[in-house]
């Protein structure tokens, strides 16, 4: 009886529509390809460094076969195979590098800050031209600058001798872009209103810069000091080209000893120290910058890290 019932309204079969087969994956899917490529890149660039660091802890004197962990290349006292701490050449290289880094930073920062303030707050056509000079070191090959300056010091400015003096002068020229660009970026962010407020309250031009602008620029000044220091520690081209009879820096020593030298893993230890200095300084800079700009709007720290990534 039930089969005889005819429902007049049943006009179409009520089968559920078959979902169309998804041909394309959604735009929100995870980008596996991109992620895989990123990891490959990271491994490619980090593993060799990791291996070099690992061999600085090698118990044996080989740079190719690992024979267990030891600190002999850092603090060992063996006469035959010098450690960084006790070999006079290696030891001197560490000191020389840090000294150069410190001097160059101390000279570069005030110059660069003055340069940035001058370019940004100085109204006129000259400042536009000088603005180009600021990105000078990103455009000119370092070797070209080094060779050019070598001739300058040999032929013109003979009172600056190759070695510490010439290296410092050249590194200041090469690194002045750090404070100039970073401080200028912050000057643009800050705007003129705080100086105007200071002038309005009675401050002279100089006083407004000293009492208001410099405190507000402190994070940028510190950040550029860190980057300058880290960049000098790493520098090889200028330092090598303009080196004199005095002590070598770590980078020059590593380069000259890498082939044919008999320092073995002590060089790895030296390179590891170089890496460590750079990392510590960059880390310090990052933390200090975050602390100094705490509570400010906008993520200036992100901008800094992206600059540091260069």
């Amino acid at each position: 009886m039930a089969t005889a019932v005819i429902t007049p309204t049943a006009t179409a079969p009520s089968a559920a529509p078959v979902p169309a087969k998804r041909r394309r994956r959604g735009p929100w899917r995870h980008p596996w390809g991109l992620e895989g490529f990123t990891w490959l890149y990271l491994i490619w660039s980090i593993v060799p460094i990791g291996v070099a660091v690992l061999f600085s802890f090698n118990r044996g004197k080989s740079q190719s076969s690992f024979q267990g962990l030891s600190l002999r290349w850092y603090t060992g006292t063996s006469k035959a195979y010098g450690s960084v701490l006790h070999d006079p050449t290696l030891h001197a290289a560490v000191v020389q590098t840090l000294k150069l880094g410190l001097f160059v930073t101390l000279i570069t920062i005030p110059l660069g800050v003055g340069f940035a303030i001058g370019i940004d707050r100085w109204r006129g056509r000259t400042s536009n031209g000088l603005n180009l000079v600021m990105i000078f070191s990103f455009v000119v090959p370092e070797l070209l600058l080094a060779v050019a300056l070598m001739f300058v010091f040999l032929q013109l400015l003979k009172f600056i001798h190759l070695g510490d003096g010439a290296e410092t002068a050249a590194l200041v020229v090469w690194n002045i872009s750090w404070p100039a660009i970073i401080v200028r970026a912050r000057l643009v962010t800050i705007g003129r209103v705080f100086e105007e407020a200071a002038a309005d309250l009675g401050a002279s031009r100089f006083s407004a810069i000293w009492r208001v602008l410099l405190p507000m620029l402190m994070p940028a000044i510190f950040a550029s000091a860190v980057l300058t220091f880290a960049s000098v520690i790493d520098d090889f081209v200028i330092v090598e080209q303009l080196s004199g009879p005095g002590s070598q820096t770590m980078s020059v020593l590593i380069y000259s000893q890498a082939h044919g030298g008999n320092n073995g893993p002590a060089l790895n230890a030296l390179a590891t120290l170089m890496l460590l200095f750079s990392l510590v300084v960059a880390g310090l800079g990052y933390v200090a910058y975050r602390l100094m700009t705490k509570g400010e709007r906008g993520n200036t720290a992100a901008a800094l890290t992206s600059i540091a990534g260069m």
């Binding site: 105007e196 407020a197 507000m216 400010e296």
Partner: peptide, 11 residues
């Protein structure tokens, strides 16, 4: 003396 639109208080 001026009161600025953005106040320009020294942070």
């Amino acid at each position: 003396n001026t009161v600025f639109q953005s106040y320009a208080l020294f942070p």
